[in-house]
Design a protein around this nucleic acid. Structure first.
Length: 272
DNA sequence: GGTCGCCTGGTA
DNA sequence: TACCAGGCGACC
């Protein structure tokens, strides 16, 4: 479930439940999670109070009043379930955070790729993230500057969290469609005008999704993602799916032409 | 810069 | 049975 709007939604729900509350018990239920964080570290969380809950990109940070930070990333499938400490655990419960007031937060994640880490106080988190999409300091000029050093395809560059924090595979495809940019265009070659369109598109697709949730049942508002073989909503083209960096990209080869690479006749196969 | 592995499930 | 999955870090 996680891209920025979904994580934002999760963070807000988490904040409403746990800010100011005292931790009673934190448990990791899956071997992959236990491998990352030891039992002793978890035990020491007891009695700490949650000072504030913050999102940075797709990371969720629970700041404790002693400066420690519980750091959660949902990866592909994670989500929060809020219930009471004696309720039966959901099938894919991977971690639980129980609080003194009886609130229980369950990390549910069928694929078990989510991560939970505890950072010591006064320690840099090392998230290495770029600006948030709505950061006013993220101007077209600055984004172009960032992209100017990248010889990768623009779709691949957009998934790099150091370029823009929080953008994921769905919205990268959606934004490129909206801006009419070929996802295979080389990032460094995009003009300032094109980057300006791209930034507007990124903000628009995220804006549209905030508070929403793109499950399969509800993704009717997606223009290209998961629409391979279906008609483009803007032209007579047909949505195609290609692989970039091991991920699926959906796009319309007919109307997403900005930045498209010219292929020489010789490379194309020698026809005159 | 590109590919693979992590995990496990849903779906064609 | 095979393929695909909203992410990311390790590896060549």
């Amino acid at each position: 479930m996680p891209e920025l709007p979904e994580v934002e939604r999760a963070v807000r729900a988490l904040r409403a439940r746990i800010e100011g509350e005292v931790i009673d018990d934190v448990r990791l239920l899956h071997p992959a999670l236990k491998r990352r964080t030891g039992q002793a570290t978890l035990r020491k969380l007891r009695g700490a109070r949650v000072a504030r809950v913050e999102r940075r990109g797709k990371h969720q940070l629970i700041h404790l009043d002693d400066g420690r930070v519980v750091h959660i990333h949902f990866r592909m499938n994670g989500d929060w379930i809020f219930d009471g400490s004696s309720d039966p655990l959901p099938r894919f419960a991977r971690a639980t955070l129980a609080f003194a007031n009886g609130t229980r937060v369950v990390l549910e994640d069928s694929r078990a790729l989510s991560t939970v880490d505890v950072h010591a106080a006064e320690t840099p988190l090392g998230l290495d993230l770029g600006p948030e999409p709505h950061d006013p300091e993220l101007t077209p000029e600055r984004l172009r500057e960032t992209l100017s050093g990248r010889r990768v395809e623009i779709k691949v560059a957009l998934l790099d969290q150091r370029v823009i924090a929080g953008l994921g595979n769905i919205y990268a495809s959606e934004a490129l469609w909206r801006a009419k940019i070929d996802p295979r265009a080389i990032a460094a070659t995009l003009s300032l005008a094109t980057v300006r369109q791209l930034l507007l598109a990124i903000r628009a697709v995220i804006e549209r999704a905030t508070g929403g949730r793109y499950t399969h049942a509800e993704n009717a508002r997606l223009d290209v993602y998961d629409r391979e073989g279906q008609g483009c909503r803007r032209c007579d083209g047909t949505i195609a799916r290609i692989a970039q960096g091991g991920r699926s990209t959906y796009f319309c080869p007919r109307c997403q032409r900005t930045g498209r690479r010219r292929v020489s006749r010789a490379l194309r196969g020698g026809r005159s």
